[in-house]
């Protein structure tokens, strides 16, 4: 299993979500995608997207002021 890293810091919403959707379509089943982001709105949209798509979230936390990271697994 590989963890792919998608850095979206500096991108405003909805770009982190748009990029995440693209990135997950390119990785292998069973791999994880870690998305680092600093758009506040994505704290709502990314976990909601993962829940709706049925992707397990293996990590979701703050890494500093207005900085977050979320890791989802491609089933």
């Amino acid at each position: 299993m590989t963890v792919h890293i998608l850095e979206t810091e500096g991108q405003v919403c909805p770009f982190p979500l748009v990029e995440a959707k693209r990135a997950i379509s390119e990785i292998a089943s069973g791999d994880e995608l870690r998305i680092d982001f600093d758009c506040t709105q994505a704290t709502d949209t990314l976990p909601r997207w993962a829940a709706d798509e049925g992707y397990p979230v293996t990590a979701f936390d703050r890494v500093g002021d207005a900085s977050w990271t979320i890791t989802v697994q491609k089933p």
Binding site: T43, D44, P47, R48, A50, A51, D52, G54, V57, F60, D61, R62, W68, I70
Partner: peptide, 9 residues
């Protein structure tokens, strides 16, 4: 009805 989104700790 949908899966609850994961929340920050």
């Amino acid at each position: 009805a949908r899966t609850k989104p994961v929340q920050l700790p």
